[in-house]
Design a protein around this nucleic acid. Structure first.
Length: 190
DNA sequence: TCATTGATGGTCT
DNA sequence: GACCATCAATGAG
């Protein structure tokens, strides 16, 4: 194995326990890893969105602490997975301190290993990686689902845009909290 | 290329 | 009963 390809391993919890916008930006280029039945699925994160806690009208946590949003209020470094439109799942990473109710939505990944089909959207990403309600609250410092430094780091430019599908959120809908890798073909449309 | 719409179910009012 | 952090198929231009 080449020396330039270190083994993949979970980022420390301290990575997630920081400002959500910083985490959202730094997640770009990282590898999302899901190991199921001995098969290691790996995708490079190319698009994220930051959700800034209870005051963020676009965040699910702005409706308060409920059974659904419980994970968002929990400690950082865990997955907040929810079903949307009755069909798709979406995966978030919980950030900041416990109780802060912030997180980063993973919107798109670039297939690296053992991934079938496109992952250019939160629903597609979860389907391709087999992520569903079973992963609700899953600790990302675990052996089977985690985020790692990439095997081969690459340079890129980050683009900031308004978040997708949050028109109802007033001034919060205008904020530039969507981040993606400039020019990457796996970023979702719109 | 763009706008519209159906699928489908959990959550909240 | 309404709303939804989506996607794919459809049809008009």
């Amino acid at each position: 194995m080449p020396a330039s390809t270190p083994a993949l391993r979970p980022l420390p919890r301290s990575f997630y326990a920081r400002d959500t916008q910083i985490v959202a930006r730094e997640l770009l280029g990282m590898y999302l890893v899901h190991i199921v039945d001995g098969v290691e699925q790996v995708g490079r994160i190319v698009e994220t969105e930051a959700y800034l806690g209870e005051h963020d009208r676009a965040a699910h946590s702005s409706r308060g602490r409920t059974a659904r949003t419980e994970a968002m209020f929990g400690p950082p470094g865990h997955a907040y997975v929810y079903m949307i439109y009755g069909i798709h799942y979406s995966m978030n990473v919980v950030t900041e301190r416990e109780g802060h109710a912030s997180g980063v939505l993973l919107r798109a990944i670039e297939p690296v290993r053992n991934i079938e089909g496109r992952c250019s959207g939160p629903g597609l990403l979860c389907r391709a990686l087999g992520i569903d309600r079973r992963h609700y609250g899953h600790d990302l410092l675990s052996a089977d689902l985690y985020i790692s430094l990439p095997g081969r780091p690459e340079r890129f430019t980050i683009v900031r845009r308004p978040r997708v599908g949050v028109h109802y959120a007033g001034v919060w809908a205008r904020r530039l909290l969507r981040f993606y890798i400039k020019g990457n073909p796996h970023v979702s449309r719109r």
